[in-house]
Structures are given as C-alpha cells and as structure tokens.
Amino acid sequence: MTRPVPGAEAIDPDVDLHVPAQAAEPQAPVLAAVAAGGALGAAARYGLALLWPAGAGAFPWATFWTNAAGCALIGVLMVLVGEGGRTAHPLVRPFLGVGVLGGFTTFSTYAVDVVRLLDEGRGGLALGYAGATVAAALAAVTAAARLTRGAVRGRVRAGVRPRAGGPGRGRGR
C-alpha cells in the first residue's frame, strides 16, 4: 500500500502515488488525455520508422533516435511541470508525459530489435545497440533536465517569476 507523502516529488513520471495530487487525480479525464497522447506518440514513432526503415542486420536508427529524443523531452517536461514546487494544468503530465512521450518511446521494440539482431548472427551489433541506447537515453534525460533547471533558475534570477523553491544542483551549463 503506497501512501501519499505531502511535498513528495515524483520518481515515476507516469504516476507516483507518493505525490498526493497524483494519487487523487480523477481517472476519466486523465485516461482520456493519456489515450489521446499515446495515439499521437505511437503514430509519430510509426512515421519515423516508415521514413527510416531498418534493414535486416542493420542498426535500428529510427528506434534509437526516437528513444533518445523522447528521453530528452521527458527531462525538459518533468522539470517544468513536476519539480521545485512548479505545477501545470493537471492534464499536461498525463497528455504529454504519460501519453505522447510514453507512446513515442518504446522499450519492447528496443528489446525485440536486440533479439532480432542476435537471431541474424549480428552479436556485436546487438550488444552495441543494446548499450548505446541505454547510454544515449540516460545522457539525454540528464543533460535535458540540467539545462532546463538552469534555464528556469536564470528566469527566476531575472525576476520573471517568483522562486518556486527547492535547491538545484549545478548551473546547467
């Protein structure tokens, strides 16, 4: 049983029941926003795969860049809507984060592409793809979150909006 903790910040960006507002969020509008976003995200991923098809035994570049870009964008989004006491419209995170970015990025296609490359006798490439995706995803989310925090702090210092609280780390750039 997960209890909401006042003031808690989400670890899971999809939904974190430690965050009181997310534990109590109304399910019907949230599910509708997630479904609409998921349809758009999946279609965008499909479009990229059609534009940039991976041939047999080749590095799956479309999925690689889809996942790297989606990880960078979730870093930007979650800093803007979920950190330092900042809030946004309650359907922004469900639509853009859970729906669009969650539907755009994919773990299953990544896993199956590694298995497919192994099946095609491309063991080295499979290992390289498996590792490169993890490295790119973590680097992308880290860099994007830090840059966004730095930009937000710059705006706060310039007096654009009141300080939202929460000490940051690093200056982002």
Binding site: G70, C71, T106
Partner: peptide
C-alpha cells in the same frame, strides 16, 4: 507497434533512473 510500443516506455524508465 501500437499497443506494445505504447505500453512500454524508455522515457519513463530513463527519468526514474535519473
């Protein structure tokens, strides 16, 4: 492409890890 692709996620996984 549709259900499994959207059910699974890399963005959520990476942000949680961060």
């Amino acid at each position: 492409t549709g259900v499994c692709g959207a059910l699974t996620t890399y963005s959520t996984f990476s942000y949680e890890t961060l």
